[in-house]
Design a protein around this nucleic acid. Sequence first.
DNA 1: CGAAACAGGACTGAAATGGTCCGATTTAGG
DNA 2: CCTAAATCGGACCATTTCAGTCCTGTTTCG
Lengths: 162, 162
Amino acid sequence: MLKLSKKSEYALMALQSLGNLAAGERIAVPMLAEQRGIPKDLLAKVMQQLKRAGLVHSSQGVSGGYALARPLTAITFLDAVGPFEEALGLAPCVDRNSEGCDRADCCSLHDPMEALNRWLMAQLSTLSLAEFVAARPPVVHGCVKAPRQPTSMERRPLPCEA
Amino acid sequence: MLKLSKKSEYALMALQSLGNLAAGERIAVPMLAEQRGIPKDLLAKVMQQLKRAGLVHSSQGVSGGYALARPLTAITFLDAVGPFEEALGLAPCVDRNSEGCDRADCCSLHDPMEALNRWLMAQLSTLSLAEFVAARPPVVHGCVKAPRQPTSMERRPLPCEA
DNA sequence: CGAAACAGGACTGAAATGGTCCGATTTAGG
DNA sequence: CCTAAATCGGACCATTTCAGTCCTGTTTCG
């Protein structure tokens, strides 16, 4: 879970690099690809998708290249990664009433999964790339295993409820 | 992202069903599989893994079956789903210093991803299955798209810091 | 002792993923 | 004007992952 695709990884890398550019400056895919050590052709595709998503601007021609459409503080993690995770979000039967799954019959987990998904998306859309790339792992190590005292999902309110 | 595998889905279903059993009662795989409409053999494997993970108890023999090892309030979402998401957690270069990735060179995203992963795992380990299966999606609809005001990942403190 | 359950390895077909290749279009510079 | 270098974008392929099946044990109740 939350195993991001390579495309997502490359997108994050690229956006980070673009964030280091001076105002008005551009960078071309071949250059970027060599710097980060990623396949040129694949990165090209990623950049195209980022453009379609409106996160970057491009200019064609011999001295063309890419630049951020807005600062990293105004791009969320979900923005960056969403275009590449088509199965964006979740799990079992998102594609609701396709086959079977008449609700409450086979798949009584539809609603919970949708709730969890919504929550996750909301969380990831409150994390800007600027914050993300600056993050360092917490010193705590046994963290994942430790807490065995369940709390409510609602205790961390969704941003839109505020 | 967060696209759970079928096994995870089946595990959640099975655990939910097991939660509805009377104390001391068991249910066999063939029965369970038919009730929820999932392939018998696959479910069998899932149950085996759940047993290895210590979430359920099994008894063999002709009237054997499975039962919860502890109540749903004491099983977290991460517990249930973890065993089936080997790529549990995250993304690009978790397998740290395997090839390349000498840190800060190609993959300056290693630390941020690890931080994000830790955070997610921590969150999912504070959600009990009891809460999960009872969850309903919030009425708000434009929720995912709405918030464009980035906040810090640290603002939602990790449980282990408390 | 036999039917029915768990236990678990081996295998297969389909789908997704990462990556490559090639052609078309645009555009700066000589 | 013409070429080199860049963005576009479709087609394609190889490898892996995944869902599902099969088959052979082993346990245990009646």
